[in-house]
Amino acid sequence: MYSVPLLNPQQREVCGTLMKAVDDGNSGLFFLDAPGGTGRTFRMLLILATIRARSDIAVAVASSGIAATLLEGCRMAHSLLKFPLNLQTIEQPTCNIVKNSAMSKVLIAAKIIIWVECTMAYKRALEALVRT
């Protein structure tokens, strides 16, 4: 991994856990919640760069425009994942992504989807992505 010597032991452990899950092909949800100034963005950039350096696909989405500017290639979650406008009123929402579209192929091939500030998103938005 790039810049690993710059990580402190706790950061190294987090990156190692995520990269092991990616390398083993284990799907799952991981939440990285830490106070400002603890290197969250640095770790996300490191993981994205490492996966992309292997010529694999790493998708980055964010719940806010400010967060989207922090990561290279990051887009707003509602724009990229095409959530329905009535997300809160649908019993079991899904993303409005056409089954054989280019975006569906990217999401299927992605080794990791990093959602910055996912705790700021509606619960149903996360459920819609999982369901899709």
Rank of each mutant, 00 (worst) to 15 (best):
A128R: 04
A109R: 12
A53R: 11
L70W: 00
R52P: 04
P5D: 05
L85E: 00
I51G: 03
E127W: 08
L81H: 00
A62C: 04
A21M: 15
A102L: 12
R75T: 09
R75E: 08
S79T: 10
E13K: 15
S79K: 11
K20I: 05
T89G: 11
V130W: 06
A109K: 14
A67E: 05
I51K: 08
T69P: 01
M44D: 02
A34W: 14
E72R: 12
V98E: 03
I112W: 00
L29M: 12
D56E: 15
A21F: 11
G36C: 01
L7S: 04
A68C: 01
R43C: 13
Q92W: 02
T50A: 15
A102W: 01
W115I: 10
S64Q: 05
R40C: 04
I47C: 03
Q92E: 06
I90W: 01
T50W: 10
T89F: 11
I108T: 15
I90R: 06
L48C: 14
T50S: 13
A34H: 15
S79D: 07
I66R: 12
G65V: 09
M120H: 13
L70E: 00
V61A: 07
S63Q: 07
A109V: 01
A68H: 01
V61L: 14
M103I: 14
G65I: 08
E127Q: 02
L18I: 05
A62I: 00
A102P: 12
E117T: 09
A49C: 03
R75M: 07
V130M: 08
A67V: 15
G16N: 14
M103S: 03
A60W: 01
N26F: 11
I97G: 00
L7Y: 03
L18A: 02
C74N: 13
